[in-house]
Design a protein around this nucleic acid. Sequence first.
DNA 1: GTAGTGATCTTCT
DNA 2: GAAGATCACTACG
Length: 180
Amino acid sequence: MLPFDRDILDLARALVGARLVVRGAGGTILETEAYARDDPASHSFRGQTARNAAMFGPPGTVYVYLSYGLHFCLNVVGRPGEAVLIRALRPELGIDAMATRRGMAVDSPLLASGPGRIGQALGLTLADSGKRFDGNEFRLIPPEAVPDLVTGPRIGITRAADRPWRFGLKGARGLSRPFA
DNA sequence: GTAGTGATCTTCT
DNA sequence: GAAGATCACTACG
């Protein structure tokens, strides 16, 4: 398991290359984004609401939110009000289950390449928000070696869009979008 | 290959 | 009323 109580940028970097397993399905994390407490792009920026309550839970909490009314996106909460969005996954475990939920072939490059796709592939719902990465339903396994990372601006936001808080596994296929 | 748009819900102005 | 941490489908070059 990983230490969650640390600077959110450190946590976002540490999660790239780690293994994420949710109820027996998952794989290696290829891409993450950091959202800080004092960050205009973060859901926590305007304070706690019913929707983002899990983001203010203890380090290691699962935060799932509904994006654009139809996509469930997965976050790892660090210090209260800070979280890391998981943007891309290389499927390695429970691939059949993920392919079934996605309605595509097991070797499709689109199985979990994007935050909404991960949500669908892992079968996430709002009921998962507030659970913990404690090794039961949600598990995180640190990488054996520190991988090479690439860095870039976050995707799909308008505020604080220049902060280079997106991290990817260098040279990996299956990123949600290429790094410049 | 790029460009446009619909789906669908929460929050903010 | 509009925008948002998105994706998939369609139309068109």
